[in-house]
């Protein structure tokens, strides 16, 4: 195994682990940290599976999009959308 394959295997295993933990969590807001772990792992898989310069942009776009989604879900769940305290 090259280092790239070992890293890919670790990312895949952690993604499945995070999805299983997310499915078992009962509280809605406490699901979001597991979704964050999942998006970290998927970002790593995107960058590792195809090393191409546009891959950096794709990984960053996926990560920022996932973060924005978590932010909007959490903010809407407790009330106002995107309002600073």
């Amino acid at each position: 195994m090259t280092p790239q394959e070992a890293a890919l295997a670790v990312c895949g295993i952690i993604a499945v682990y995070a999805a299983v933990r997310l499915a078992m969590e009962q509280d809605t807001l406490r699901k979001l940290p597991f979704l964050n772990v999942l998006s970290f792992a998927i970002t790593g898989v995107i960058a590792l599976i195809l090393p191409h310069p546009l891959g950096i942009v794709a990984a960053a776009a996926y990560f920022v999009g996932s973060t924005l989604e978590s932010n909007a879900i959490a903010s809407t769940y407790v009330g106002g959308l995107d309002r600073r305290e």
Binding site: P3, A7, V37, F40
Partner: peptide, 12 residues
């Protein structure tokens, strides 16, 4: 590549 996997492990 090992640092990508390491960061995923650290955030986990």
């Amino acid at each position: 590549a090992e640092f990508i996997a390491g960061m995923v492990l650290a955030i986990a």
